[in-house]
């Protein structure tokens, strides 16, 4: 199926959606309240049948005050691809989970939460994925500031011998 036909099929059941033809995969942008519905249509409609979630990622756009959530989809059956996008408010980012549509979205969304701080609503297990649980901040935000240290480990190498740290001594033998 051509990307335009996919768009027409989606807008027939969803209403208007923004469409960007691309040199690569064409993209369809939907408002966040249609996000889950759009995913369900793309997954369940037998003519679309996007059975493979290739990736779910985020893009931080502080200039427009948005975080974009981007899904790359592929259908093995029909051999067609599409990109599904939504923009969410950067100050209180929240997006509904797609893990009931594609189980693979579970960890992708945990990563989205971990690195962008997007609150994925009704996610079964929303914890950090790659960074430690007690990490502060979301590093792929453009305004992320690296702290000086994490659990006593400095985040820069000492620049002079005087600043050199000694690793904690081994615990005393009883």
């Amino acid at each position: 199926m051509k990307p335009e036909e996919i768009r027409d099929k989606l807008t027939a059941s969803l209403g208007a959606a923004e469409y960007t033809p691309g040199p690569g995969d064409a993209a369809i942008t939907v408002p966040v309240d249609r996000w889950h519905e759009a995913a369900t249509v793309l997954r369940r409609d037998p003519d679309l049948d996007f059975d493979f979630l290739r990736s779910l990622s985020g893009v931080d756009r502080p200039a427009v005050g948005k975080i974009e959530v981007v899904c790359h989809l592929l259908s093995y059956r029909h051999r067609h691809t599409i990109v599904l996008k939504t923009g969410i408010d950067r100050s209180a980012p929240a997006v509904p989970t797609l893990s009931d549509v594609w189980p693979a979205a579970n960890w992708h969304e945990r990563e989205l939460y971990d690195l962008f701080g997007v609150n994925v609503t009704s996610h079964p297990d929303l914890r950090r994925l790659l960074l430690p649980e007690d990490w502060v901040g979301h590093p792929l935000r453009k305004d992320y500031k690296e702290p000086d240290s994490y659990r006593g480990i400095p985040m820069q190498r000492p620049q002079t011998a005087a600043e050199a740290v000694t690793p904690p001594a081994a615990p005393e033998k009883p």
Binding site: L131, P139, E146, I153, P154, Q156, V165, T166, P167
Partner: peptide, 13 residues
């Protein structure tokens, strides 16, 4: 990069 320890000697002798 943000997640990488800047040298093993910061955590072990």
């Amino acid at each position: 990069s943000y997640p990488v320890v800047k040298g093993g000697d910061l955590i072990l002798p």
